[in-house]
Design a protein around this nucleic acid. Structure first.
Length: 942
RNA sequence: GCCCGAGUGGUGGAAUUGGUAGACACGCAGGACUUAAAAUCCUGUGGCCUUUGGGCCGUGCGGGUUCAAGUCCCGCCUCGGGUACCA
């Protein structure tokens, strides 16, 4: 029988579908195992070859666990809200709900063709009102809770109000930005607005002013992704940072628990480190500085309070609230100019900026100890959202402060003598204090202690723990997302909708353009926004991370209408045992999901503190990205050929990605756009209509044989990079099993690599050879003869290696172990049933279609996927000798076999008497001989 | 800039975690089958030198530790991911 993957796949698939092979229910007789993939965003470009990398790995693992006797939950769904569908709607008028539904359909078709063992009855989509009802409900719960630092958990706002009523807020310890203290009487006397404002400072979902990327020309707020080199990716218009009132989630309340929780989960060290750094816990002190001639004070945070006597100036973030107030007339122009410059840059650009920039405000602060007047500057290296947005600058002990002081001629006072620590760098907390009045002579550590006490006793500062982690901006001025379940009364005070009013469905519209002043498209829908009695709705929507922060819980009970999932189901499935997904989600999604989970835990809604016990990062399958260069600040849109770009003029150009289909020789250093490519590009991006293209020798329009060189990079395969490769054609040509094994064979699962189909022939050949073991002249030919010792050894070697490799997610080496096994059995012409039957089971998780077909051809009744995984038996592996490499001074010289039960001394004696050795040790002294049993022998000579 | 990865033949990668560098594949070369090609099968394949016994060099670069380094330490370079509104 010929290996015909098409008919095999159809046959197996229809059988699986018929008996609902992968449907799973609670089963108290089996241990549960929950394998989860990061669900995909259903992009218009379709599933690309990078998605399945993780899905195949998790599917192999699921199938393996199932064969090992576990009740495996392995679901799939869609992260269906998001910006691309909305951008697509803006361009085409097609409603995001329509395009998203189509994309999901396509994804499902694509996923179904790859032989995954998903329980499709649990499929979910975050844009489904039945789903986002609960996303909204969790949001209302966050709105209705605050974080009590005494009990270290979330508690209800109503319990907080009770305390306010009985004793004010003096004894409350909460995660809050509420600074003023009030009594019960004061609270009771407050207006509804005042109370609401105070409660906002406590809620876990709250409002404050934040900055958005505002593009005046497009009249819209842009995602960071849509801003390139300081201009809008679409059209190349200027973008500035604009303040807007927005919703935030108080994730910072959970900073300490998010940090500590990392110790108890099985994630890679690198991923944990990323999260630890992201949380960025640092101990230090906050200090208040008076401002000369003003009542206000500047609060700073420093990790080095000991160096306070070296503080020679201060720097505020350019957006700091006090900048306007303290800047005298004489310096207004300069300060405003600088602030405008900074607001034209994104945060990344600011942090990456190598140039030292800043402006003097003209104001002075009063040093709390020396009482000297020190100048207050603003500078982009101080970020508004980190710490207090203000620093005391100590140029002697901080590199950036030092560079700043050098550049602007500010004074530097050495305060730490490091002569006793010649190895120590500027940032190491060691040395003796000098020039520091009361701290002189103290070690840094002691100085920190002393100065903190001093600050506290003088009431001008205190010890403090600060986190780099910031509260999560949760508002989007967009359409395609969950509407906030929030209404405002006639006074503008926010109220959460009760569960009975949920879901608050996203209203239908066919106009996705932004509202006035950058507000969301929903703000145009007056009938929806306006409610009786002067009430009106929140018009922002939630970000895509909302839906993905809890979806793993919904799979446990996806159709429940009474709760986000029933207690029974949550108690049975508990948490995710294995989570597979890209490391690009290392902070955003994984941090938010952990935060929501802990919040739900505080409310006794989930039984575990952490959602994902074990996490494996799959690397990215990368693609080629092609860019062309657009001149910034030029009304006549002008693209120039890449060879005209150099380091000096680079920042005058924006990189605009081009669809790889338009680019000739894409992926090479000589990639270029010719006339057809330019025309295709202009049709594709009509906003660049009328643009001109310059190469060193020609100009478009005008020349007919222009070559605009493009810049090629390797990077993420993504619709926004226009470089997506789909799996369909590969599956059509080689079959799903070959595709699966090839993606695994490409390399370690966690490593990123560019997509390339070179080499798929090898895997295809392997499957056909494997199939060939069972057939002779197209007829099934399997012998019932007992296998030889050698055959059993080959089989069990493979069982051992494959089992170990699956357990440690080393699928590429598992595939090569299977290849070796098949090659060796072929050499022996082995067709013994007792070898082939376990071999098919061994391959089953990797090649589910082919193995199930062979299984049934061998006369087995049920699907192979409900059979048992073969067990390794060490008996077949016993070796009676081992071939040692004999090294001289660490270099291998020859090989020699010794009986496996030889001890170190026996081997050493034998080796030293070997004739082959004489030539290497002649005229030299043997100093020692190192024997590592079952490894190697090294003779050291001099 | 900061944080996290990665760098091994022409290519993807392997190496029991300090112990035979290059498993398994792709590609290439030669051969068998064929009128021919494809498919299939066999052989060879890191570089340099060679008296054909073998020798020397070799895991991004420069140092170091060790009997022994792809693996550990120090200092760099290049590429990728993240950098809080792509998901």
């Amino acid at each position: 029988m010929k290996y015909d993957f098409k008919s095999i796949e159809e046959k197996s698939q229809s059988l699986w579908d018929k008996i609902d092979l992968y449907k799973v229910n609670r089963d108290q007789n089996k241990p549960k195992y929950y394998v989860l993939d990061m669900f995909p965003y259903p992009s218009g470009a379709g599933l690309h070859v990078g998605h399945p990398l993780g899905y195949i790995a998790s599917d192999i693992f699921s199938r393996y666990k199932r064969m090992k006797g576990f009740n495996v939950l392995h679901p799939m769904g869609y992260d269906a809200f998001g910006l691309p569908a909305e951008e697509y709607a803006l361009a085409t008028g097609i409603h995001p709900a329509v395009s998203t539904a189509e994309n999901m359909k396509r994804y499902k078709t694509q996923l179904s063709s790859l032989g995954f063992s998903f329980d499709w009855s649990r499929e979910l989509a975050t844009c489904d009102p039945k789903y986002y009802k609960w996303t909204q409900w969790i949001f209302t719960q966050l709105f209705d809770h605050y974080y009590n630092l005494k009990t270290d958990k979330a508690e209800s706002i109503s319990s907080l109000i009770q305390i306010f009523n009985s004793e004010g807020n003096a004894h409350i310890e909460a995660a809050t930005e509420q600074e003023t203290v009030f009594t019960a009487e004061e609270w009771q006397a407050m207006s509804a607005k005042q109370r609401s404002d105070i409660l906002m400072n406590y809620r876990l979902a709250y409002q404050k002013i934040g900055y958005v990327n505002w593009c005046e020309e497009l009249g819209t707020v842009l995602a960071n992704d849509q801003v390139k080199d300081g201009v809008s990716e679409r059209g190349g218009y200027p973008v500035v940072q604009k303040p807007m009132t927005q919703w935030y989630l108080r994730i910072t309340a959970y900073a300490e628990r998010l940090l500590n929780g990392l110790d108890n989960i099985d994630w890679s060290d690198s991923l944990k480190t990323i999260q630890r750094n992201w949380i960025g816990r640092s101990e230090g002190a906050s200090v208040f500085f008076d401002i000369k001639g003003h009542d206000d004070q500047i609060e700073i945070f420093t990790t080095r309070p000991d160096t306070i006597f070296g503080a020679t100036y201060m720097v505020l973030a350019p957006e700091h609230d006090l900048v306007k107030a303290i800047t005298p007339e004489s310096h207004k122009a300069e300060v405003e100019k600088y602030v405008a410059y900074v607001q034209s840059k994104s945060e990344i650009e600011r942090m990456a900026e190598k140039k030292i920039t800043g402006a003097f405000t003209g104001a002075y602060a009063v040093h709390p100890f020396t009482v000297e007047h020190i100048p207050i500057w603003i500078g982009e290296y101080v970020l508004k959202d980190y710490g207090t947005g203000a620093i005391m600058a100590v140029p002697s002990d901080d590199e950036r402060d030092n560079a700043f002081a050098q550049k602007f001629g500010l004074s530097i006072i050495d305060v730490v003598d490091k002569t006793e620590y010649p190895e120590a760098g500027m940032h190491d907390k060691v040395g003796k204090m000098i020039n520091s009045s009361i701290l002189n002579g103290l070690e840094v550590k002691d100085a920190i202690e002393k100065i903190c006490k001093e600050l506290e006793s003088r009431g001008i500062g205190k010890k403090e723990v600060n986190y780099k982690l910031r509260d999560a901006g949760f508002s989007r001025q967009r359409y395609w997302g969950e509407p906030f379940p929030i209404i405002y009364n006639s006074e503008g005070l926010a109220e959460a909708l009760p569960l009975e009013s949920l879901p608050l469905e996203l209203p239908a519209t066919d106009d996705f353009k932004p509202g006035k002043g950058g507000r969301s498209p929903l703000s145009r829908l007056e009938n929806w926004v306006k409610l009786p009695d002067g009430y009106y709705r929140e018009t922002d929507i939630m970000p895509a991370v909302a839906g993905s922060s809890w979806y793993y819980l919904r799979y446990m009970d996806p159709h429940n209408e009474e709760a986000f999932a029933s207690k029974e189901n949550i108690d049975y499935w508990q948490d995710v045992d294995l989570y597979v997904g890209g490391s690009e989600h290392a902070v955003a999604h994984l941090m938010y999901a952990r935060f929501w989970h802990k919040f739900l835990y505080d409310n006794n809604l989930v039984p575990t503190e952490e959602p994902f016990k074990k996490l494996v990062n799959q690397g990215m399958i990368q693609g080629v990205i092609e860019f062309i260069f657009l001149e910034k600040n030029n009304a006549q849109k002008t693209f120039v050929s890449a060879e005209l770009i150099n380091e000096e003029n680079e920042d005058q150009y924006a990189r605009i990605p081009v669809h790889i289909d338009f680019v000739s020789d894409y992926g090479s250093t000589d990639s270029y756009l010719n006339n057809e490519g330019i025309e295709a590009f202009l049709t594709w991006r009509p906003e660049f209509k009328g643009a001109i293209f310059k190469s060193p020798t020609a100009v478009y329009p005008g020349n007919n044989d222009i070559q605009i060189m493009t810049l090629s990079e390797v990077g993420k395969m993504s619709k926004s990079k226009f470089n997506v490769v789909n799996p369909e054609s590969v599956v059509d040509n080689y079959g799903a099993d070959t595709f699966r094994m090839y993606e695994m064979f490409l390399g370690p699962i966690e490593q990123s690599k560019p997509w390339d189909t070179k080499g798929i022939e090898g895997v295809s050949k392997f499957i056909r050879k494997f199939w060939g073991l069972f057939f002779e002249d197209d007829k099934l030919m399997v012998s019932d003869e007992a296998p030889t010792k050698e055959e059993m050894k080959i089989l069990h070697q493979a069982i051992k290696k494959v089992t170990e490799d699956i357990e440690k997610f080393s699928f590429n080496t598992a595939v090569s172990a299977l290849m070796i096994c098949v090659n060796e059995l072929r050499k022996l012409n082995c067709n013994k049933r007792d070898v082939l039957l376990p071999l098919v089971q061994l391959i089953a998780p990797f090649a589910p279609y082919t193995s199930d077909e062979l299984w049934s051809q061998l006369g087995q009744a049920d699907s192979i996927h409900v059979s048992d995984f073969p067990e390794f038996n060490a008996e077949y592996m016993v070796e009676d000798s081992f071939e040692y490499p004999i090294c001289v001074n660490g270099k291998k010289r020859f090989l020699r076999s010794f009986p496996a039960d030889f001890g170190k001394e026996e081997i050493e004696a034998e080796v030293l008497s070997l004739e082959e050795l004489t030539k290497w040790i002649e005229g030299k002294n043997v100093i020692k001989t190192i024997v590592v049993p079952k490894r190697m022998v090294n003779v050291v000579v001099k």
